[in-house]
């Protein structure tokens, strides 16, 4: 099997509220999912029936990412750790080193989005930006 065809996992870095929700959803729909966090207690947020793989470790460590997290088999990656700089670094690693087809990265600081805009496959999401857009839209509705 070629390396490309063997991509069939979803990798989630950071098992906070967002990471755990995404992981639970994928697990429910029967998709292979690997969720990583440096803190084992974070996995308490996963459903009891969570069928995916849990890995405790530092995702910025490339050998951990390759061996334990099997990043080379990931078809999409969610970078949702609580540290923007870790998410930023991993977005660059996933795009430039591992050529992951689809990379979602969450930034609390919307300015970080600028730093990934030229990376292939990377989509930056900022809760701040989303909230602002939503509020603007709601205000517009009210005006009408």
């Amino acid at each position: 099997m070629s390396k490309f065809n063997s991509r069939n996992n979803v990798l989630i870095v950071g098992c906070g509220r967002l990471g755990a929700s995404i992981a639970n959803r994928y697990s429910e729909s029967g998709i292979n999912v690997i969720v990583v966090d440096k803190d084992e207690d974070a996995f308490d947020r996963l459903d009891q029936l969570f069928a995916g793989d849990r890995q405790v470790g530092d995702a910025t460590n490339i050998s951990f990412l390759t061996n334990a997290c099997r990043i080379e088999s990931a078809t999409r990656v969610f970078l949702v750790s609580g540290n923007d700089n870790v998410n930023l670094f991993l977005a660059h690693v996933c795009a430039k080193v591992f050529s992951i087809p689809r990379i979602y990265v969450r930034f609390d600081d919307p300015d970080r989005s600028e730093l990934v805009k030229d990376l292939p496959g990377v989509i930056a999401i900022s809760p701040f930006q989303l909230t602002l857009e939503k509020l603007t839209a709601l205000e517009k509705e009210d005006e009408q």
Partner: peptide, 16 residues
């Protein structure tokens, strides 16, 4: 002392 912070600072300085 944080590699990740240094990476982010350098990237921002260079790109923006």
């Amino acid at each position: 002392p944080s590699d990740m912070d240094n990476f982010a600072s350098c990237l921002m300085a260079k790109n923006l």
